[in-house]
């Protein structure tokens, strides 16, 4: 079983600051962490490996420092890691990111399951997983909360939906995104940390992936961020006065108007 886990390094959002001049995220002095949802993806990958054997390969696209998340992945159970890093990848939206990841996964050649977190905590779109499946032409299941069984080239999973869950079977290879209910991620081990320290993490550039430069980074992005702003919080309370009965009927009218009742 060859398992690929996609991870992203994100700023720790417990300590977020926006530059009021440029409306962009202040990254200086902010701790970077593994996107929390991706830690569940990695843990599930490692658990699948422990159950069925195989190897876990962790992949991340980002600047050179994103190597840190890959070392942490090795410390917590990944066997190999690959960093996708190139100036040409900068400014990628989800489409360009998924394209780049898909090229890298194709380059790995052997893969049975690709696991991603449900979304990142910085972009919050939840698009990369499904886009990746589309580009790799693989089946896709989102919001997986349990991997029941893998056998004979099939996988049975439970996925969360709004008012319950669905049990689905999918042929392999497949792409999954997982929710935090799926497991409790382990902490690194001392032997894992030692291994991570000396692990050689290859860096694949645009050239090595043989990508079309018009499909990666900012130039490959279908979307542009035009502005980042805090939504204005408008609070306008209204106080009704007069007879209680007229107050109630006015309230009911208001609620009807707002289609609440």
């Amino acid at each position: 079983m060859n398992i690929v886990v996609c991870l992203k390094q994100v700023p720790d959002t417990t300590d977020i600051k926006i530059d009021p001049q440029t409306n962009t995220l202040v990254r200086q002095g902010i701790k970077n962490i593994v996107n929390p949802f991706d830690t569940y993806a990695l843990e599930e990958g490692v658990r699948v490996k422990e159950r069925y054997g195989g190897r876990v390969t962790a992949i991340s696209m980002g600047p050179a420092q994103a190597e840190e998340v890959l070392r942490e992945a090795i410390a917590t159970g990944a066997d190999d890691a690959v960093l996708l890093s190139d100036g040409a990848f900068a400014g990628a939206d989800t489409l360009a990111t998924a394209y780049t990841l898909a090229r890298a996964i194709n380059k790995l050649e052997q893969y049975d399951v690709i696991i991603c977190g449900r979304q990142t905590i910085d972009g919050d779109t939840g698009q990369v997983g499904p886009e990746l499946a589309e580009m790799l032409k693989l089946s896709f299941v989102a919001y997986v909360s349990k991997i029941d069984e893998i056998s004979n080239g099939y996988m049975r999973v439970k996925r969360m939906i709004e008012d319950g869950y669905e049990v689905m079977e999918t042929p392999l290879p497949a792409v999954l995104t997982v929710v935090k209910e799926i497991n409790v991620p382990r902490l690194p081990s001392l032997r894992g940390l030692t291994k991570a320290k000396s692990a050689v993490i290859p860096v694949w550039t645009a050239q090595e992936l043989g990508v079309d430069n018009n499909m990666v980074g900012l130039s490959g992005s279908a979307t542009r961020v035009i502005e980042i702003f805090f939504p204005q919080r408008v609070r306008c309370g209204e106080i009704f006065q007069g007879e209680l009965e007229s107050q109630v009927s006015r309230l009911v009218d208001k609620l009807r108007e707002a289609t609440i009742v």
């Binding site: 382990r186 902490l187 690194p188 081990s189 001392l190 032997r191 894992g192």
Partner: peptide
């Protein structure tokens, strides 16, 4: 145990 602390 998982973190190798008993190996120390």
């Amino acid at each position: 145990a998982d973190a190798d602390m008993f190996r120390v």
